[in-house]
C-alpha cells in the first residue's frame, strides 16, 4: 500500500519541528539547571571575596580577575594581528597561490583542538621560553587560538563593505591605506566587533588551553608572570575533585551568564549589520 505523500509531508514537518525545538530545549535545560542550582549560592560576597580552603568556602574574585585579564590581553594582541591579516587578504592582494597558503594556515589553526594549543603553549611558552605557569603564557597561547576566528569574521565584514565606497575614496585621491583606515574599517567595524566578542566568549570558556599554560594557582594574579586560575579552570577543579557542589554551580552560573551575554551582544551587533546591508 502506498501512503499518501501529503500525509508523509505533514508527518515530516511535525518530526523536523519537534527535533528543532528539542535541540533548543537542550539549551534551555542547560541554562535552567545552571541558573536554578547556582542562583541560591551566588551573592556579592561570593563575587568579591577570595576563596578559602581550596574553594570550599569564600568567593571567586581572583578567578574573575584572572579570566578578565587573560581574555582582554589576548584580544588586545589578537585583534591587530587578525584584522591586519584580514585587510592584507582582502585589500592588498589578489587571490593567488600566496593567499591560498595563508588561508590554508588560518583554516588549519582553526581546526586544531584546544588541548593541542595547551600542549604547544606548555612546551613552548612555559618550558622552552621559561615563562613558567603564568598569565603571559596563557595570554600568548589564547592569542594564537582565537586568531583564526578574528581573521575570518573580519574578512567577511571587510568584504561586505560596498565597492562604491572605496571607489569614491580613491577618486578623492586618497591612498590605499587612507581608504582602508578612514572608509573601509569604520564601515566594517560592527562586523569586526562581532568576531571580537565571539572570541572573548571562547577565551572565557576555555579550559584545556589555559590550565596547562596559566596554571591553577588560587592567588590573585598581579603581574604577567603570575600563575592564576580562570573561572572555567576553577569550576573544573571544584567539580572534578568534588570540592563543593554549591560553589561549583555558582561558579558555573557566573561563567555561563557572562559567556551567554557576550555572545548575545555579538549576535545583536551582527543582526544590525545584516539589516543594514540587505
Amino acid at each position: 500500500m502506498r501512503i499518501n505523500p501529503r500525509i508523509i509531508d505533514k508527518a515530516v514537518k511535525v518530526g523536523l519541528t519537534s527535533q528543532a525545538f528539542f535541540t533548543v530545549g537542550i539549551l534551555v535545560a542547560i541554562i535552567a539547571v545552571i541558573f536554578f542550582k547556582g542562583f541560591p549560592n551566588i551573592n556579592m560576597e561570593f563575587i568579591f571575596s577570595f576563596p578559602e580552603d581550596m574553594g570550599r568556602h569564600g568567593g571567586i574574585f581572583p578567578s574573575i580577575v584572572g579570566t578578565i585579564l587573560i581574555a582582554l590581553l589576548s584580544i588586545l594582541l589578537a585583534t591587530p594581528l587578525g584584522v591586519g591579516t584580514a585587510i592584507y587578504l582582502t585589500e592588498y592582494t589578489k587571490e593567488s597561490r600566496l593567499t591560498k597558503i595563508i588561508r590554508f594556515g588560518v583554516e588549519s589553526l582553526a581546526g586544531i583542538p584546544s588541548i593541542l594549543y595547551g600542549l604547544f603553549g606548555f612546551i613552548f611558552f612555559v618550558i622552552k621560553l621559561k615563562m613558567g605557569w603564568s598569565l603571559l603564557a596563557g595570554v600568548l597561547t589564547l592569542t594564537i587560538m582565537i586568531l583564526p576566528t578574528i581573521i575570518r569574521t573580519s574578512e567577511e565584514a571587510i568584504k561586505a563593505v560596498p565597492r562604491n565606497l572605496r571607489i569614491v575614496s580613491y577618486s578623492l585621491s586618497a591612498t590605499k591605506w587612507e581608504t582602508v583606515a578612514k572608509v573601509v574599517l569604520p564601515s566594517a567595524f560592527p562586523g569586526i566587533l562581532t568576531g571580537i566578542m565571539l572570541s572573548v566568549g571562547r577565551a572565557v570558556g576555555e579550559t584545556a588551553a589555559t590550565i596547562f599554560t596559566m596554571g591553577s594557582s588560587l592567588r590573585l594574579p598581579t603581574s604577567l608572570m603570575d600563575s592564576g586560575r580562570t573561572l572555567a579552570v576553577h569550576f573544573y577543579i571544584l567539580a572534578r575533585e568534588g570540592i563543593s557542589m554549591e560553589k561549583a554551580y555558582a561558579t558555573a552560573l557566573v561563567l555561563v551568564l557572562s559567556i551567554l551575554s557576550i555572545n548575545i551582544i555579538a549576535y545583536y551587533i551582527m543582526n544590525k549589520v545584516i539589516s543594514k546591508y540587505s
Binding site: 555561563v256 559567556i259 548575545i264
Partner: peptide
C-alpha cells in the same frame, strides 16, 4: 542564534552536567 549559543557553553559545563 539560540542553536548557535549551544557552541558558547564551555565544555567543562557539558562535562559537569
Amino acid at each position: 542564534p539560540a542553536l548557535e549559543l549551544l557552541a558558547g557553553i564551555p565544555s567543562v559545563v557539558y562535562g559537569f552536567l
